[in-house]
Amino acid sequence: MSVAESTLVQVQAVEKFYRRGSETVHVLEGIDLGVRAGEFLALMGPSGSGKSTLLNLLGGLDRPTKGTIEIGGERMDHLPDRPLAAWRARHIGFVFQFYNLLPVLTAERNVELPLLLTPLSRAERKRRVAIALAIVGLAHRAKHFPRQLSGGEQQRAGIARAIVTDPTLLLCDEPTGDLDRKAGDEVLNLLQALSRDHGKTVIMVTHDPHASARATRTVFLYKGQIVTEMPK
């Protein structure tokens, strides 16, 4: 397989400005980044350096001011809202720092949410939810509500929700930021296994060197620019 073929994410000359009153805030400047399929990439940098902003651009939650983003050979940075939503549903799984499960739904109902957007039958949805919960080791907690789960368990449910549609790309914004070392390690083990054993491409924002050590590569962001790339 050639390098070009295995490049899943291609970011070129991306800039992101925000207009705050009369002044323009340059959050990202001249970002060039390639991510190969199956990579487990860590994104590090000080607070406010633009990590979440970049992750949002990659996930199609926001659009770059300039530059292009291609994922799987398809440019998605200029898609209108509706096709972009459909694109997200098909290609992206998000994992958030604070898990962001819906408190009114059980773990399995939370995991089922992204599948509601697909034409799958109820039985088929149930089957896939069960598989995703089994992968994250939460099969026995399926009927529990988020408040009945520990932080680590909630985050694993969050990961199950992110992978249940079998997305192209898994985007995690500080997935261990709110967890203690032990629970954090479990989540990292899981992400690592997803990348290594299931061939998932994972991009993870983190502040924690312990977490980035699990990644296959780490990229540093500093004041909106990629400063050093150190392949591991």
């Binding site: 996930g59 939650l61 809202d81 509706r82 939503a85 459909a86 694109w87 997200r88 549903a89 098909r90 992206i92 998000f94 958030f96 962001n100 819906l102 949410l113 992204p114 957007l117 929700r161």
Partner: peptide, 15 residues
């Protein structure tokens, strides 16, 4: 608000 944002991140359309 945040939950609605999460739903949209998953691919729920505005409509």
């Amino acid at each position: 608000t945040e939950e609605l944002g999460v739903l949209k991140a998953m691919g729920f359309t505005n409509a």
